[in-house]
């Protein structure tokens, strides 16, 4: 760039910067109004003992957080949520990948299978929960009738405190698999078929070799993306618990969002519910940071 052009360029840069601010302004405003302010409000509320409808409230510092540390329900809730995530994430990611590979490899009925697996993602989960409730009914439910048919005992999926979280996890997997599948399908279609041919010439004869040497490494960024998204969705499990178990029996299906809802809107303790919500947001933030950090460092193939 020549010397003469320098000063107009400074003016141009300033103008460009102003324009840039104007262009991002709508989303900045939205983020501030819809995300930052509510989050700050929740943090503020979490430092009070406010009860819904009660005009008297006090600023109590971090007392709500101190109480949370020894709150039995909250501990159970964290443990149950962790267990739920630990089951739903790997199983639905694996099933989603499997379904995507099978659909991609097949030639017939692709559209049908794609929609069939994706249907749970777009269906109204509250309505579907009622269907699951019937399917899992301990005496008249088809799942248990099938189990009995092959000589297995009935399982009280939603009524027994020992298995209820697994029962909910089954529904969670059913819900999340289609979502994982669609993302994997997109990832698979981006793989150049020539890579498979090249691998075959180089001696990767079996389908497993081709999967392990070509598909898996190229899909790695997709897999990470799918895994974190599925995890985040699983941490947010709420509708099935609200409709089917309300945290019971005996707190065995307490999960974070339900516990927060119960504390805030049924017990009316807005202060301590806000403290729980802050912890919950922190957990989600950590998951998101892990995802973006790892994605940035990732080597991208293809």
């Amino acid at each position: 760039m020549s010397e003469a052009a320098k000063s107009p360029s400074i003016a141009f840069d300033a103008m460009r910067e102003r324009a840039a601010w104007w262009l991002v302004a709508p989303s900045v405003v939205l983020i501030v109004v819809l995300l930052v302010i509510p989050t700050l409000a929740i943090i503020g509320l979490s430092l009070t003992d406010l009860d819904l409808g009660n005009p008297d409230w006090n600023f109590i510092g971090v007392q709500n957080y101190v109480d949370l540390a020894s709150d039995r329900t909250f501990r159970i809730s964290i443990r149950n949520t962790a267990l739920y995530v630990a089951i739903v994430t790997p199983v639905s990611v694996t099933l989603g990948l499997g379904a995507a590979i099978l659909i991609e490899a097949g030639t017939e009925l692709r559209g049908f299978f794609r929609s069939a697996y994706f249907l749970p993602v777009v269906s109204l989960i509250v309505a579907m929960a009622t269907v699951w409730q019937y399917l899992m009914h301990p005496t008249i439910g088809p799942i248990n009738l099938l189990l009995n048919l092959v000589g297995l005992p009935s399982v009280n999926f939603l009524g027994s405190s020992d298995v209820v979280i697994y029962g909910l996890a089954i529904i969670g997997i059913w819900q999340a698999t289609g979502f994982a599948m669609v993302l994997f399908l997109a990832g698979l279609s981006a793989i150049d078929p020539q890579l498979y041919q090249a691998a075959e010439i180089d001696g990767a004869k079996s389908w497993w070799d081709r999967f392990w040497l070509v598909t898996w490494p190229i899909l790695a960024p997709t897999t990470l993306f799918v895994t974190t998204l599925t995890m985040i969705n699983a941490v947010k499990v709420f509708e099935t618990v609200t409709t089917l178990t309300q945290g019971g029996p005996s707190k065995s299906s307490e999960v974070l969002l339900w516990t927060i809802y119960e504390e805030g809107f049924i017990y009316l303790h807005l202060g301590s519910a806000s403290a729980m919500a802050v912890v919950f947001i922190a957990v989600l933030l950590v998951l998101i940071i892990i995802q973006t950090r790892t994605l940035d460092k990732r080597v991208h193939y293809g």
């Binding site: 009914h137 301990p138 005496t139 008249i140 009280n156 939603l158 009524g159 178990t245 029996p249």
Partner: peptide, 16 residues
């Protein structure tokens, strides 16, 4: 049997 609330109603109205 240890049924949830809705399951109780379903089972009773089903004649079980």
């Amino acid at each position: 049997p240890n049924l949830s609330s809705d399951a109780m109603v379903q089972s009773f109205t089903a004649g079980k």
